[in-house]
Amino acid sequence: MRFVLRRLGFFVVTLWAAVTLNFLIPRLMPGNAALAMMSRYKGRIQPQAMHALEIAFGIHTHQSLPAAYFTYLGNIARGHFGISLTFFPDAVSHQVLQALPWTLGLVGLTTVIAFLLGTLIGLVAAWRRGGFLDGALPPIFVITSAFPYFWLALLAIWFFSIKLGWVPESGGYDVTTTIGWSWTFIGDVLRHSILPAFTILITSIGGWILTMRNNTISVLAEDYVRMARAKGLKPWRIMWTYAGRNAILPNLAGFAMSLGFVVSGAILVEFVFNYPGVGWMFLQSVENQDYALMQALFLLLTVAVLVAILVADGATALLDPRTRDSS
């Protein structure tokens, strides 16, 4: 129980830190980018909404810094992120919610698949120490881990879309199909997601494989694995319940660390593919100097990472009785 509370506490603190950064950054940055943006709202939105924006970006506001800060916190807590410029006059919160499912479906699913698959491959590679997988994988994936995601995405588009014409080169779906729960539409969405998903998978799976392999090698040196051999257990049981279950624990912790990496890669992949998710929208908002939308999306990304970490924590607690008992 204490464990859950502690993790939730951490969740709140981090979220608060992200909101505060959001509040401080426009105030700390020199230049009048925000000012230029504000002028574009002039006369188009209601004074009250205008005021909220002024507080968010620290312009024309006569409130003291602490007062502005608390007003801002209040606005965020109620989900008032302002009006989007890019999608005027739609509310930012509404736009964000539209982008979310696309990213969850593409990045979320792909990341989970990459994690599970990578962990499995890493486990088997370490188990067959000195075998083919173990010898070939580490050098390959050490090098691919240094590949820029977006560049691979470019190459993938060039080769599979432009040269071979197998898959569409951009977008989340074909604009000519009607959106809905029809097989045509679902098929179309899948077709559009193959290439970006593949790019994310290729670039992120290496990290999981390598860490899982190294974890497993350390775990294989543990006394309890030797004990399992002494007990004459079947090899696959030793691999799963003795080596694997213990080696995945640090990998789950590493999952939390590496998510930031995955998220940044995914943003660029969405950008390259014009995929209508959070990352693409995020960069659109940057391009259009739509700061209200941009900051809301930044918060959303933080929350997404935090939620994923909570899930990883939950999995850890499920697999490791020591976490459950520790206070």
């Binding site: 603190v13 980018a33 939390a256 930031g260 700061y291």
Partner: peptide, 24 residues
Amino acid sequence: SLLTDVLLVIPIFPLIIVIAAYEK
């Protein structure tokens, strides 16, 4: 440690984008 953990979790790349967006 709290500072370290928080920074570890906040997605750095988007944060840098946010900062860069104000200061092209």
